[in-house]
């Protein structure tokens, strides 16, 4: 549903990625991990069709439900009005959103249990609330694909957890092809099926979460040693998380 076939993108003489091939089918969620400046944002731009490919092809629906990191930042509109904008592609140049468009927007808010945001002014919302509205807008497009640009980066820990749970809910419905970028491999563990690693050397590898979220691969990816640590889940069950092992981590137990 969304992906590339042997695609390359370059800026001038600099090649950000070449010969990349992957596909996210409907029902699966892929996390994209990579160090800063490696081209995660460019990959999303290329996937959305904003960045021309030097070669190869992209697969994507005409309209993808795109959730930008910061969207509609100046809109002094209600949350519902921002969600209704997701229906824009269905309106003609002179079109106005109809009762149907409004109903779809409301349905998207209901789906995310975010009805309380409908009448709040968007520009007065918190970062977490805005993100909820932008996700609802992406759902309101009706697109079978959802693309998130670092959905957790700008959020505090509480909102990060809520966003990851929401991502996981959307993932487990298995009715969309979902792709998101993130800095934290634990976020990939929490909410994805597949992982694409954009390695610093200029090549990419992808596979299932279990295959990709491994200390050796991630150590190479981030240039710091990574290792599994034991953590406790919400109901006290033992779990594993992956963390960098550097001199400043944690305190002596």
């Amino acid at each position: 549903m969304i992906g590339f076939t042997d695609a390359s993108v370059s800026f001038g003489s600099r090649t950000l990625f070449s010969g990349i091939t992957f596909n996210v089918p409907v029902g699966r969620t892929m996390a994209v991990l990579g160090p800063n400046g490696r081209g995660k944002t460019t990959l999303l731009r290329a996937l959305l069709g904003f960045q021309p490919l030097a070669k190869g092809a992209r697969t994507a629906p005409k309209i993808a439900g795109y959730v930008p990191q910061h969207g509609a930042s100046q809109a002094k509109l209600s949350g519902l009005e921002v969600v209704v904008m997701g229906r824009a592609a269905r309106l003609g140049l002179f079109g106005q959103p109809s009762a149907d468009d409004r109903a779809s927007a409301e349905a998207a808010l209901v789906e995310l249990s975010a009805c309380h945001l409908a009448d709040l002014r968007y520009d007065r919302m918190s970062g977490g609330q805005r993100q909820m509205i932008l996700i609802a807008r992406a759902l309101a497009t009706g697109s079978p694909a959802l693309i998130f640009d670092e959905p957790t980066s700008a959020l505090d820990l509480g909102n990060q957890s809520r966003t990851l749970e929401l991502l996981n809910t959307l993932r487990l419905r298995r009715d969309k092809a979902i792709l998101f970028t993130t800095h934290d491999p634990n976020h990939a563990l929490a909410s994805s099926d597949d992982v694409l690693l954009m390695m610093p050397g200029g090549h990419e590898v992808h596979g299932t979460v279990a295959e990709m979220i491994q200390p050796d691969l991630l150590s190479e990816l981030y240039g710091v040693p990574m290792r599994w640590v034991e953590v406790t889940g919400p109901t006290g069950e033992p779990r594993r998380a992956i963390l960098p092992a550097f001199s400043g981590i944690g305190v002596a137990a």
Binding site: Y66, Q74, M85, A88, F94, T141
Partner: peptide, 22 residues
């Protein structure tokens, strides 16, 4: 006046607007 709703959409960031099919 005919383009009035379009103006709401054009007030979005370039990339965001394009992602919505504008």
């Amino acid at each position: 006046w005919l383009l009035r709703y379009r103006l709401n959409l054009l007030a979005l960031e370039e990339q965001e607007a394009r992602s919505l099919g504008i």
